[in-house]
């Protein structure tokens, strides 16, 4: 029953994104922005190639450029994901459909997982559409020493990092949508929360010792950066998964407590 309930609610949740043009517009915008960025990335790469042909180029490799490209993608995801998660639970409250869910034989955790999975799938679709860029690079490089293609291992690790960090943001957004009936409030708090996690790495720079190390571990973008340099560490997985589980747990608590308060 556990998976049956989740799949029932997940299907509705996923479809709900496409009842309005919102998802189409956002996915379209994302792909459009990434396309423009990829274009300028290629331009830069060609410039560096020319410069290094005259022995003037610095140690710029295609992998370093790809790292910058994906760092930009991460920032765009940071901005866009809260828009996908803000409606998750707020819409149930404002439409009164929460009463239907709470009087159906489902567990709140199944509902929470279904909601998270619905938004997470949208993000996966967005990320999936950008896979064309590294494939393009790989296909059109001649794999020579002067013009190597991107290291597909690093690209793979980067995507894994993007998926994990996006899911963390989705979990954060899921939580904030569960504590309010207002989409705007959910949006603002999700932004604030995500930027707070980002600020941790800046804060870490002004500290030292154990505090610095702890803050750096907690800053998700630091974890993501290690993925995009091609380092896969168990520690980073654990940190991302901890964030996701923590926020989904809080969401479950907030939904459960709602029945008692209503």
């Amino acid at each position: 029953m556990f998976f049956k309930n989740i799949s029932t609610m997940f299907k509705r949740e996923f479809r709900a994104y496409f009842y309005t043009p919102l998802a189409y517009v956002f996915i379209g915008m994302f792909v459009f922005f990434m396309g423009i960025m990829f274009n300028s990335f290629l331009q830069n790469y060609l410039n560096y190639m020319q410069a290094s042909a005259y022995q003037m180029g610095a140690q710029i490799t295609i992998d370093r450029l790809a790292e910058a490209f994906y760092a930009n993608m991460h920032v765009i995801l940071m901005i866009m994901i809260p828009f996908f998660t803000m409606r998750l639970f707020t819409s149930e409250s404002s439409q009164g459909t929460f009463a239907l869910l709470m009087t159906s034989p489902i567990r709140t955790i199944e509902l929470v997982i279904a909601k998270f999975a619905g938004a997470a799938t949208i993000v996966l679709i967005m990320l999936g559409m950008t896979v064309i860029f590294p494939i393009f690079l790989f296909a059109f490089s001649d794999k020579s020493a002067q013009s190597p293609g991107p290291d597909m291992g690093i690209v793979g690790a980067t995507y894994l990092g993007l998926v994990l960090i996006s899911f963390t943001y989705v979990a954060i957004g899921t939580f904030w949508s569960s504590i309010t009936e207002s989409q705007l409030i959910a949006l603002v708090f999700t932004f604030f929360n995500i930027f707070f996690l980002w600020l941790l790495s800046l804060w870490a720079q002004s500290t030292s010792g154990g505090v610095q190390a702890t803050l750096q571990q907690m800053a998700v973008n630091e974890q993501f950066m290690s993925f995009s340099r091609g380092t896969l560490e168990l520690k980073s997985f654990v940190i991302f998964l901890s964030y996701i589980i923590f926020y989904l747990f809080l969401t479950n608590r907030s939904i459960e407590s709602r029945a008692w308060r209503s």
């Binding site: 509705r12 709900a16 439409q95 009164g96 009463a99 239907l100 009087t103």
Partner: peptide, 17 residues
């Protein structure tokens, strides 16, 4: 919950469906 059908004061409708 399996055996009860409930209509609250405001019908719980997913209006976009």
């Amino acid at each position: 919950k399996k055996r009860v059908g409930y209509l609250p004061e405001n019908p719980p409708l997913y209006i976009e469906m």
